[in-house]
Design a binder for these strands. Structure first.
Length: 744
DNA sequence: CTAGGGTTAG
């Protein structure tokens, strides 16, 4: 098959006299300088090598072992011809050789195996070599030991070590370093150190092998000590120590080493920069990262994808998405990693719509998503409530991955279903996976809680404990919030007690938050207060806000004033608390105080976080703000809103305008309510989906009381299930009532 | 008669 290549390009055709073996003179001088052979070293890929091979046969050069040696060596060395193709090509030459292969050829065959995907076969080849009467030399062992390192073959490595001793080759610097590396990479640091200490001829390379071993085992102090002992440090030794600190998460120190390296006038290379970029990404060192960016440009390395991806990752992790996107768009041959980094960057910064959009572009580009892609895109679906896209991904996973054993993938999928409003599918996926990780228990328990399935949520918690999975602090947030959604005061007390005493988990702010929210809502202000006093940390804004909310439910105006003073001290510029207090005043009819707060808000120039609701239709996420008129079908939406309004009025719905803060007329206040973002999303859902289809919307804030009662009626009037996720929980509206039983 | 060891992003 090697002779079936198309005719050589003109540049490869060499007219030279055929050579004959055994013609008296040893032809090595001639061979070395023969044009066909010097071409081998310039060879770019295996295709070209085949053409040269054909040429060699034509000229009779293949009768000389020297020639074949060079070909096999090429297969072992060249990255273009290496790997599996290189190995099989080398093998075919080896097996069809006329004479006994010499040691050089045996050694290079072992070298081919070391770089292949089955390095263990190198050992078999070595045994075959011994069987044919060949004795290994100082070149054989580095290749062989490299195979043991690559294949994790510690036992075989040990045996080979005894061969080394028998041959008296342990003092050979190359063999010595290979042994250290083999032991170190197999996690046998003590053995590695024994070998290291035995030799008195150590150089920077053997030091580095030992340092790498220590560093990858997390023994940074040992690595550091050896590093200090090296008299002349080169790039690779610097890289090893820098990478070691990066892998241990000690990024600032890694960057300090890098600066020392530059001070010592050692020139960094691509590997250095990949580690440095990783350190910058993790420690948000944008300045240093930018410096590396210009270094890459100066050294014209813009086409090195590994390096550019690392740079891209740095920009994303440092939050400079604009620069990242510019770089990303400029990469001509993006790989899966480039896409993953950019998509993950958007998700990470909360720009979920852009993440989803880029994911769709990725599919159009023909690049296949992998597990990492899915793990960054699922949270975006979850956040946006993009159930259709989520279902598509589920089907994609079924087709392409064995995902049910991948715990993070399945957990992410369960979370997506739960938070996109489809708790049944979440439960189905949960039931189907094995093993069930702690995280998967946590997401299903909190998912059920959010949907108001309090009983099954708590049952699942008992089942989890029965099956021997130890709950953690996150589990208890889920359990306590479950109690909170169900108004189960006594159970919550018991779980809280059990968490502290049985599981020795010290409560965090969120645990206190659930408890205080629950106690406050139940009107148990004294107990809530003493719980706050027992906390070892100061109550945060969330806790004070939920106390304030409880004051509203129970008309506690004076207490509300005390609490809001503390809240305003903590967050003077967050309008949420002011709005809540003003609502409490409004409910008590204290309009003067309402006006005072409004002035305070205006003086400080505070803006409420705008309410935003989204709905996914045909895999496209549509977002709406209050009074939003930017949507392409805005006209139809507002016609629908008017229609809804009329029907609501007919059904006897009376808008409660007391919570509207602005100084406007009663009629306008009603308007402000009708155009709340969730109302717009629902109206769009009604006009863009078939009758009877469930409408799912997601809101970034809590749903207001007025919209809640309106939505209940809408579900009845239009005969639709409406599933709404707000900041706090899910509301399933059906036939005029809501799954939350008006408790939220 | 040719060769060999240590560093590598999501």
């Amino acid at each position: 098959m090697f002779f079936s290549s198309p005719p050589s390009p003109a540049s490869l055709i060499i007219f030279s006299p055929p050579l004959k073996p055994n013609s008296g003179q040893p032809p090595y001088e001639l061979l070395k300088t023969h044009p066909s052979l010097s071409l081998v070293s310039k060879c770019k890929n295996i295709q070209t090598l085949k053409q040269i091979h054909a040429q060699i046969i034509k000229t009779g050069l293949h009768h000389f072992q020297f020639t074949l040696s060079r070909l096999i060596e090429f297969c072992a060395v060249s990255s273009a011809g290496g790997g599996e193709t290189g190995l099989s090509y080398a093998l075919s030459i080896f097996e069809s050789m006329e004479d006994q292969p010499n040691l050089f050829i045996w050694n290079n065959m072992i070298r081919c195996y070391a770089l292949s995907s089955s390095p263990d076969l190198a050992i078999q080849f070595y045994i075959r070599m011994l069987g044919s009467g060949m004795e290994p030399n100082s070149y054989t062992f580095p290749f062989l030991l490299k195979s043991c390192t690559a294949g994790g073959l510690f036992q075989q490595g040990k045996q080979i070590h005894s061969h080394v001793l028998k041959m008296g080759l342990e003092t050979d610097l190359f063999v010595h370093t290979s042994l250290i590396n083999m032991y170190a990479r197999n996690g046998e640091l003590v053995d590695a150190r024994l070998v290291f200490d035995k030799s008195c001829h150590r150089d920077v390379v053997s030091f580095t092998a030992m340092i790498t071993g220590y560093a990858s085992g997390g023994y940074l102090d040992d690595a550091r000590r050896l590093f200090d002992e090296i008299s002349v440090r080169d790039v690779v030794s610097w890289n090893a120590i820098i990478a070691g600190y990066v892998q241990s998460g000690r990024f600032e120190e890694a960057l300090r080493f890098f600066k020392d390296m530059l001070k010592g006038n050692v020139k960094p290379n691509e590997s250095t920069m990949i580690s440095v970029l990783s350190a910058c990404a993790h420690s948000s060192s944008l300045e240093m990262g930018n410096w590396v960016g210009s270094w890459i440009e100066d050294n014209r390395l813009g086409s090195n994808l590994r390096l550019v991806n690392a740079l891209l990752n740095m920009y994303c992790k440092c939050g400079d998405l604009e620069k990242a996107r510019l770089l990303f768009d400029g990469i001509s041959r993006k790989d899966c990693v480039s896409w993953n980094i950019m998509i993950g960057g958007y998700t990470h910064m909360g720009r979920h719509k852009e993440a989803l959009h880029l994911f769709q572009q990725m599919q159009r580009s023909g690049e296949e998503p992998n597990e990492v892609t899915i793990l960054s895109i699922l949270p975006a679906c979850t956040y946006l409530g993009a159930l259709e896209t989520g279902i598509w991904i589920h089907a994609y996973l079924d087709r392409h991955f064995k995902w049910s054993t991948n715990t993070s993938l399945s957990t992410s999928l369960i979370d997506m279903y739960a938070k996109c409003g489809n708790i049944q599918s979440a439960k189905q996926v949960f039931d189907s996976i094995y093993p069930k990780s702690l995280a998967s228990w946590n997401v299903i328990i909190s998912g059920l809680a959010m949907h108001g399935h309090v009983d099954s949520s708590l049952e699942l918690f008992s089942k989890m404990v029965d099956e021997g999975t130890e709950p953690n602090d996150i589990t208890f947030i889920a359990v306590l919030s479950s109690c909170s959604h169900g108004g189960l005061v006594e159970q919550a007390r018991q779980y809280f007690y059990s968490m502290v005493n049985d599981y020795k988990i010290s409560p965090k702010l969120q645990h206190y938050g659930c408890m205080i929210d629950l106690l406050g809502r139940a009107g148990l202000f004294d107990e809530a207060d003493s719980l706050i006093k027992s906390m070892e940390m100061k109550p945060d804004a969330a806790i004070l806000s939920s106390m304030l909310g409880a004051c509203k439910v129970h008309d506690k105006v004076e207490l509300a004033e005390v609490i809001s003073d503390k809240l305003f001290e903590l967050e003077p510029d967050n309008p949420g608390g002011y709005v809540l207090l003003s609502n409490i005043y409004a409910a008590a009819g204290r309009w003067d105080d309402v006006a005072k707060i409004r002035t305070r808000l205006n003086d400080r120039g505070m803006k409420k976080v705008p309410g935003c609701s989204s709905i996914e239709v045909n895999s496209v996420v549509h977002e709406f703000l209050v009074y939003d008129k930017t949507h392409a079908r805005s006209k139809e939406i507002y016609t629908m809103l008017d229609e809804i309004d009329k029907l609501l009025e007919l059904a006897g719905h009376k808008p409660d305008t007391s919570e509207v803060l602005y100084d406007i007329g009663e009629k306008q206040k009603e308007g402000a309510l009708c155009y709340h973002s969730e109302r717009l999303a629902i109206a769009f859902g009604l006009i863009s989906t078939r009758p009877g289809t469930t409408i799912r919307i997601v809101k970034n804030l809590r749903v207001c009381g007025n919209c809640h009662s309106a939505t209940k009626l809408i579900s009845k009037i239009f005969n639709r299930d409406i599933i709404a996720r707000d900041r706090n929980r899910f509301h399933h509206f059906r036939d005029g009532s809501c799954s939350c039983m008006d408790y939220w």
